[in-house]
Design a binder for these strands. Sequence first.
DNA 1: ATACTTGCAAATGATTTGCCAGTGT
DNA 2: ACACTGGCAAATCATTTGCAAGTAT
Lengths: 149, 149
Amino acid sequence: MTSASTHAPVETSSIAAAEERLRAAGMRVSAARRRVLEVLLGSAEPLRADQIAEALGEHGDISSVYRNLERFEELGIVRHVHLGHAPGLYALNTGSRLEYLVCERCNRVQAVEPAALDAAREAVRTGLGFEARFDHFPLAGLCRECAAA
Amino acid sequence: MTSASTHAPVETSSIAAAEERLRAAGMRVSAARRRVLEVLLGSAEPLRADQIAEALGEHGDISSVYRNLERFEELGIVRHVHLGHAPGLYALNTGSRLEYLVCERCNRVQAVEPAALDAAREAVRTGLGFEARFDHFPLAGLCRECAAA
DNA sequence: ATACTTGCAAATGATTTGCCAGTGT
DNA sequence: ACACTGGCAAATCATTTGCAAGTAT
C-alpha cells in the first residue's frame, strides 16, 4: 500500500492506520492525537468535541480537540454530522458511513444504512438532478410515532 | 439580500391579520413589532435576524428582534429555515411554504414547491415510515453541476 | 534544530437572558 | 395603572484564532 491518496476512507478499526496516514501527511503523532483517536474508536456513537475533550482528562483542551478533528477530517480519518440544532458529532470515518433521520418533534435520531434511502435518493436525482446525502446533514421530518399525532 | 424599504405597494392585509393574531393572543401591537412584520413582508427572501435589525434603523435591537421572531413563530405568523451552516432565516408564514435543497459543495440554495419532493417523501414514508420535511432543515447533497465533478 | 503542536486566553458569531425604563391597552 | 415590551449590557453556546512554550522527528 503505497497510495498517496489522502481521501480514501480508513478501512480499519486500528489506530495504527490513522497514525500512518498522519505521518504520510507530514503531521506528527502526538499523545493528544492518539488519545483523540482512541476515544473515537472506543465510542459506539459519534461524540461532541467537548465530550472528547472531557474524555481526555485533565489535559483535554477543547480548542486542540477541534483543531485535531479538523485535521483528521481533512485526511479522511474522521467525519462529523449535524443532527438537528445540536453541536457537531464526530466519529472515525469507517468504510460504512451511515445516514441519519431526525424527528423534528421528539428529536429521536435514527441511523440507517445508505441503501435504506436509495429510493428517495433516486427520486430526487431523477426529479431534480440533485444527488441527496444524509450523512452530514440528516433527513428531517416526523418519525412514525410523531407523524401519527 | 433585498432592500427592506420599497416603493412597491405594501400588502397590509397580511400585516393586519398578523396584528389581529397578536391581539388575540393578548400580545401588544408595538411599533417595533409592526416594523419587523413590514420588513419581512417587504422581502422576497427569508432574512437573518441581523438583517431585520439593521432594516429597523438606529433603534433596531437584535435581541428584541429575536424575541419577537420567536413569539411570532409561536403564533404561526413567522417561520424560520436553517440552510446549511448559516444562521437562521426568517420569513412570514404564508400559505405556500417552499422546501429547500442546499449543495454541500457550492452552497447554492434551491427553493422548490413541496410537490417537487413528493416522490422522495413517498419513498421515505413507504420505506421507513418517516414523514420527511425539507422546509425547516433542507435536503443536503450535491447539485447537478457539483455532482458531475 | 526546527517545524509542528499544545494549552491557555481571548475573539468570534449566533442567539439568549436579566434588568429596568418605557409604552400599549 | 399595569402588565407587557424595548433597548442595552452581559451571558451562553459552539467554534475559532493568536501566541508563547513544549515536543516529535
